[in-house]
Design a protein around this nucleic acid. Sequence first.
RNA 1: GCCGAGGUAAUCUAGUCCGGUAAGGUGGUGGUCUCGAAAACCACUGGCGACUCGCCUCGGGAGUUCAAAUCUCCUCCUCGGCGCCA
Length: 420
Amino acid sequence: MLDVNIIRTQPETIRQMLINRNKDTGILDRFLSADSEWRMLTDENNRLRKVRNEVSLQISKLGKGDEKDSKIVEMRDVGEKIKDNDARIAELELIRDDCTLNIPNIPHTSVPVGKDSTENVVIYEKGEKRKFDFAPKQHWEIAESLDIIDFDRGVKVAGSGFYCLKGDGARLERALINFFLDTHIRQGYTEVFPPIVVNKAALTGTGQYPNLKDDMYHIEKDGLFLNPTAEVPVTNLVMDEIFEIDKLPVLYTAYLPSFRREVGKHADTKGIIRVHEFNKVEMVRFVHPDTSYNVLETLRGDAEELISSLKLPYRVLLLCTGDMGFSCSKCYDIELHAPANDVWLEASSCSNFTDFQARRARIKFRPEPHMKSEFIHTLNGSGLALPRTMVAILENYQNRDGTVAVPEVLVKYMGKEIIG
RNA sequence: GCCGAGGUAAUCUAGUCCGGUAAGGUGGUGGUCUCGAAAACCACUGGCGACUCGCCUCGGGAGUUCAAAUCUCCUCCUCGGCGCCA
């Protein structure tokens, strides 16, 4: 959520921002028109209430008589007018709230303007793409022949888009989660394990609600949603809280399953690249506003360290305005190379949300003791999404004989060097 | 699921029966005093706005009323007891 004062005083900045993000600008005009009428009626009601407060006090001090009766009659009309205005104000507030909740964050000046993912900028590539002296297999072929992923039985218990890890597959998943968490703890994060279901307030706080509501599993009876990304429960742990300056920065990491309905998406991706349920380790940072763009680089480095340790080839993209998430002001995607099809797979997204989420979730800090509190800056990044890391490992570490080498850093977690 | 107790400002609490400007304690800041500190005393210490002024604020919403923290109805949350239960 943006500061409404910015929308009021710099509407053209917001209009250009919406155009850069490839979004309809109608929302801005609806806001401006509802807001100016709201301000006018609110002011009128303030003046009417002042009259009513004063006269009501007089009434309370008057004895029975005509003067009292006539003032009561007079105030009855004032009360009616206030009530009518309030009804209209409530309507306008719905419009205003709908607009402010749906206007995205303002991209940082360093973010390239572009219409969609084709205009993202590759910052750099690291690591050598694997070269094969045999025909590399697809990850699902490897997984099935090694019997480490059971696609059919996953479908049996939950339906299309779900799968079951088995044997060394399940163990590799657990090894990766532990390796990721251990690395982040060393990097200074505190591990948390929050609830896997989240409520509407939490989803609103980080910006998934309302604009992504159809992408989430909804437990209607209890008003809860299955976690779409650990960003939601972890960031909202501190909803409505004020940090003292000496407690900053706060760094959390969490392993948590994530759920996506993926409606309208083609189920043409074989294997585990796009699934309804996947594990992910997430990093979340709460920082002083002056530092957030520098911290974004650090956060991205924290994710890259995992990939470098696994010795996987990857590249870093700076997302353009048209492809960036709703709440971000700046976002890097990190993509792993999957050699079987020579494609890049997004395994991490690292974003600065500035005060956009903090304003929605009311997360503040006090710059100096006893001073007025200000909104904090929030950042998060995946470190990393499990299925795509698994794909990259299976495809990059495969051998001619169908076995898969275990990346060196995972050997102590796996207790073996070869899956075969 | 049933029963009970609660939700008031940064925090703790009073006020609710019986409607009339949200009282007080703690913590905090500033001041007086002091060589300095403590204590004591004084002032300030929720949000918003078009900012000498005003409006809003007692979990949320609706209603009654000239007027609602207070009365009525609905609802959310927390804690406890019972029940069920991995």
